[in-house]
Nucleic acid binder design. Structure first.
Length: 178
DNA sequence: CGGGTTTGACCAGCGC
DNA sequence: GCGCTGGTCAAACCCG
């Protein structure tokens, strides 16, 4: 794995330590991208693009762009704020799509996307009042890589301990200040 | 029976 | 204006 693959994009605001802990996975060469706060005029997308312009980057920005604009009458207006304020994407090399991050997720949709030959799955947190969503998709260039995009902040604690991956995450962040 | 998944339909934004 | 695309809904279904 190249050194460049370990570059990490830290959020300008938002979760200081993302609750991402696929402890049940065989994590190999995690590649993590954090998406900054667009409200603060920070455009981390450009930094994304130099690393992986064709995959998770463009999709992440498209996802949130759509979520901001598409608010149905009387339906979850708060989603747009969460999306703008807290979102990040990361990649893991894994055999399974679903990351065990300690939260409970309900799948609410799956779509085939044009940019990838693999379907994109949509999940929402099942905790009452928690509007966090995530999207999971395999990298079309490398099907061993799973791209996970989180939107929003959990307003509750994890249901299970997720220390294993947090340790890994901490090590990565320590090794690669950006 | 309750909770989660599947899947087709629907809707809105965007590009042409 | 229209078609394409992505995100969400919701009914049907599955499973413990």
């Amino acid at each position: 794995m190249s050194m460049e693959k370990y570059q990490i994009f830290l959020p300008v605001s938002g979760p200081s330590s993302p609750s991402v802990s696929p402890s049940s996975l065989s994590i190999e060469n995690p590649v993590i991208y954090f998406h900054g706060d667009s409200e603060n005029e920070v455009r981390p997308e450009s930094r994304f693009q130099h690393l992986d312009a064709k995959n998770s980057v463009s999709q992440t920005s498209r996802i949130c762009k759509g979520s901001e604009l598409r608010v149905k009458p009387g339906k979850r207006v708060g989603d747009s704020d969460d999306c703008r304020k807290h979102r990040f994407a990361f990649q893991t090399r894994s055999q399974v799509d679903i990351l065990d991050d300690g939260y409970r997720w309900r799948k609410y949709g799956q779509k085939t996307v044009k940019s990838s030959r693999f379907p994109r799955s949509y999940y929402m947190c099942t905790s009452n009042g928690c509007n966090v969503k995530k999207q999971v998709q395999r990298n079309s260039k490398d099907e061993g890589i799973v791209v996970t995009t989180y939107e929003g902040m959990h307003n509750h604690a994890t249901e299970r301990s997720s220390e294993n991956f947090e340790d890994i995450l901490r090590q990565i962040q320590t090794c690669t200040p950006f």
